[in-house]
Design a binder for these strands. Sequence first.
DNA 1: CCGGCGTCCTACAACGTTATAGACTAATTG
DNA 2: CAATTAGTCTATAACGTTGTAGGACGCCGG
Lengths: 337, 337
Amino acid sequence: MAVTIKDVALAAGVSIKTVSNVINDYQYIRADTKQRVMEAIASLGYSPNLSARSLRSGKTGVIGLAVPELSLSYFAELADSIIKAAEERGLKVLIEQTGGDRARELEILASPRLQMTDGLLFSPLGVSNEDAHHLNVNFPLVLLGERIFGGPTDHVTMSNVESARAATAHLISKGRKRIAVVGGHEGEVIGSAGLRLRGYQEALEEAGIPFDHRLVAYTTLWHRSNGATSMREMLESGVEFDAMFGLNDTLALGAMRVLQEAGLRIPDDVAVIGFDDLDEGRYSLPTLSTIDPGRGEIAETAVRVLQERISGHDGPPRELEARFQVVERESSRLPTS
Amino acid sequence: MAVTIKDVALAAGVSIKTVSNVINDYQYIRADTKQRVMEAIASLGYSPNLSARSLRSGKTGVIGLAVPELSLSYFAELADSIIKAAEERGLKVLIEQTGGDRARELEILASPRLQMTDGLLFSPLGVSNEDAHHLNVNFPLVLLGERIFGGPTDHVTMSNVESARAATAHLISKGRKRIAVVGGHEGEVIGSAGLRLRGYQEALEEAGIPFDHRLVAYTTLWHRSNGATSMREMLESGVEFDAMFGLNDTLALGAMRVLQEAGLRIPDDVAVIGFDDLDEGRYSLPTLSTIDPGRGEIAETAVRVLQERISGHDGPPRELEARFQVVERESSRLPTS
DNA sequence: CCGGCGTCCTACAACGTTATAGACTAATTG
DNA sequence: CAATTAGTCTATAACGTTGTAGGACGCCGG
């Protein structure tokens, strides 16, 4: 690793700048000089020192991605898409896990630890709209998710309200009127839970179905266990329902398991739809209807927009929404009524 | 971001080296000088430029992790554990996806692209034991997984053979003798599939049960769909079995779904065990018995060993095996016979 | 009263790269 | 034919940090 541009220059009998020029495809180089330099590079096994390069150029070619946890399937699949999108643009991705903890999230925004990167894709869970001013940072930052709207940065998000409305409408179109919801966050207005719940309510309203608060189960986290526990409680409460909307797939799968344990048939007794289009839902029994929130589009847009900011693009913050789709699978496959 | 150590030095009325000394906790600094420098740092909002630091010191504080795909739950959970382990040691993780493609894996080993890192944790899928010489690289490298054994680098792995033997023995202890296997790789000897299949065979032998090749389903990939397809074919083939060992949880879940569709009861008609201890198996219906391969231990060991190599530790390559555990859940909960 | 040592600090070089400015040739222009 | 221009290359100065070498001061023991 001790071979530097200097050694190459010496071997090829040129100046170091000429070697640098060859590496960076500078146009005015004679073919034979280029050839000689290339050979020297190859024979010495030279490769540029990226630290030096980034010191000089101020760019690292690395972007940061801060997510709650990779063990949550949604974020794992998001990270997958983002790494792929970044790769297409010649960027590497450094991943940071926040655990969804507000303090830790703020620390990441404030701290210079991730200086090894040119910018950050930030998917918060703990911070809320009141923390929006913390997003005023002096590095390129693109916000993901639905915790903060109208902040000072570019924001890529899914159409939460609309797509949740579509999910609910889908169940209604199957003739269901008592639609349970699993995964609400008490008092939340902004955030995935709040927005999706709003979509749910809007769909009910459109259909003239009264909202029944007993049909909404609140959870703190969105793990499988929370879906299971909520559904268990709801069954015990004795409230009647003929459909369920899981605010994400993981919750829906956890809840579905409890429904089945209780001997209820899906979709006949309870039609179910989730949200996220996780791979898992494709092979559960029954397969899970869901909302495809456009993860690929989100990833590509986010990386593109971040790269624009990194290369100096100025302008007001943009709000970008990905297109969604209702995916009907077995858990809600019923004749339309 | 334009504030450098120089500005701080100027503001505090000291030399730049003194500022550097303060930052690096050099012992011989008067308390009041330190104080003054700290104040200057705070008031200017200075933070060290990591590119410059790593140019000077030769260390980046970042390690690379190359895995097939984060959308495979096992690798997502592995990455999660590794990021946490790295964080405890003050390291950041840059993730690279290989897609399990041999050419791409070799490219990552050869290419200098990940020079932004001090070392690499490499979990291959495409390369095989014959490619072991490609692991002779001039940067710290720790191998994960079971594709290559006896290579020139440190290697952290799970006890594949032993734990697969234990999984099989577990089914046998429940009185099952016709144990199907899903996920074999035709002709493979080394690699997760090959080793686990060996463990399976060893357990049969120990119990005096003859090996029946019709009970082994081969797949290329280890996705849910492969498990489903294999099981469908096995059912169609008419071969009889009373238990199934999925060479990983994902396969087991896919296969379990098909068993249930076919009206078979788990564990009564077919007892099932998987491998990996994914979160999903905790909430499937029924919950999935599995092998906990010691992911946390693998992650911690791998990061520790890599860090040792980075800081110059010399010595022969080490083979390190994590401890495993059989996790009994509903899919195999039967009276022991 | 002097040499030596511990403490605190500074000046400057170095890490490996790219940017700037300019030197030199050969070709083209007015 | 002088003056420009295009093409090719080089010397040197940055980028922001840490390492090396050493200077200045005060205190101690002899």
